[in-house]
Simulated scan of single mutants.
Amino acid sequence: METTDWAAVQRIVPELMGVLQNRLRILQRVNALAPIGRRALAQAMGQSERTLRSELDALKQQGLLLTSTSGVTLSTEGLTLLRQLEPVAAALAGRSDLAWRLSQALAVANVIVVEGDSDVEPWVTERIGSSAGELLIDAIRDGDVIAVTGGTTVAALAKSAPVRSGLRDIQVVPARGTVGETVAYQANTIAAELAEKLGGRSVMLHIPDSLSQKALEQLLEDPYIQQRLPVIRSATVVVHGIGDALAMARRRHASDAELALLTERAAKAEAFGHYFNAYGEVVYAMQTIGLRLTDVDRSRLVVAVAGGASKAQAIAAVAQAYRIDVLVTDEGAARRLLQMKSELDM
């Protein structure tokens, strides 16, 4: 049913649309947070337990929810139905229009906007990952080399991506070396998990992300690196997060001098070891081994995932720096980005 058709239905039975939207939100929250108890779900929904109980009972009677001692989860039928109704939910909530306007503003062909703001509600990161994972699984072809960066949102993608069988000769590789100390969010870990979902194989890159010139030269002569680097740089699909410039520099334990340089040059975003200003210009590049911007440009599909109003400047910067085919973000970032665009046009 088209958006205009839903608008006509809403005029006739507005109460029906309210029930539909509420139940869709419940299914979305359960999908993101499961297993979750009723009290915690009521708090996440901003509803009383009494109100929520009747809705959960109705959804359970329809076979869409399962309950256990650990909490509520979606049934297989519930998950299938939710995926079918995601476009409806987006249209009813105005996110389809939001995504279209953001696509025009950023010149990104395909934009998906999920509910919420991950700066405020951490579960929204899981929704971004889930939406991006479903899109990615459908887009993969036999023989693809998929490069992934680290980070919480890309990790959420790998965790929630559906299993897909029947693909041949799939490789999943880390785009770069290790950043941070949380193993679950490192590119090697994410590559291994996603490869398992796809029935493919993963390639590991056990090196630090930031290197001195001497270490870089030595590693480039290492047979271990020489074997893996050409595979990584032949990526046909790239999935990456987008980082705030100074936040990423601090995660890499940048020196005070480097932080001062990034501030002086007005760095707004980091991706693939490059720091960009608001115009998408490279203002600083790290010594790193892995995927280069030229490799990204040669790939068939580039998927970016990032959410939260605080990431708006970073998203805007990288959208001007290189080609992004798909951006999956949230309402918080989308609305802030459009506000920034409106302020610039004034």
Rank of each mutant, 00 (worst) to 15 (best):
A271E: 00
M45N: 13
D5R: 02
R336D: 00
Q213G: 04
H274Y: 11
L261E: 14
R176H: 12
A161N: 09
D295P: 11
E270M: 06
G177D: 04
L220D: 03
N188V: 03
Q226G: 09
A271W: 00
L219H: 09
Y279P: 04
I146C: 06
Q61N: 15
V108A: 07
A139I: 05
D209N: 12
L301F: 12
D142A: 10
M346N: 10
W123N: 05
Q186A: 04
V88I: 15
T149L: 04
A245M: 03
A175E: 02
N188C: 08
S210K: 02
V239L: 12
E121G: 00
H253P: 08
L246G: 01
E15P: 01
I190W: 02
N31W: 03
L327W: 10
A139D: 13
E77H: 08
P208T: 02
L102H: 07
G63V: 13
A285S: 15
E258W: 06
D330K: 00
G133P: 00
V305Q: 08
R23P: 00
I26G: 11
L262S: 08
A304D: 02
G133K: 03
L85E: 02
A7G: 02
R336A: 01
L81I: 00
A44M: 10
W6Y: 15
R95N: 08
L211S: 10
E264N: 14
R168W: 09
L92E: 02
V302E: 07
Q104V: 11
A278K: 04
A58V: 04
G200V: 06
S103V: 09
A260D: 13
E86C: 09
I26C: 01
K268C: 14
Y279R: 10
G166H: 12
A271P: 00
L82C: 07
G241H: 05
V318H: 10
R250Q: 15
Q218K: 11
W6S: 07
A254S: 11
L33S: 06
W123M: 13
V326Y: 14
G273S: 07
I140P: 06
L85Y: 01
T329M: 03
Y322T: 14
A34W: 14
E270G: 11
L246Q: 11
P223A: 12
A158E: 12
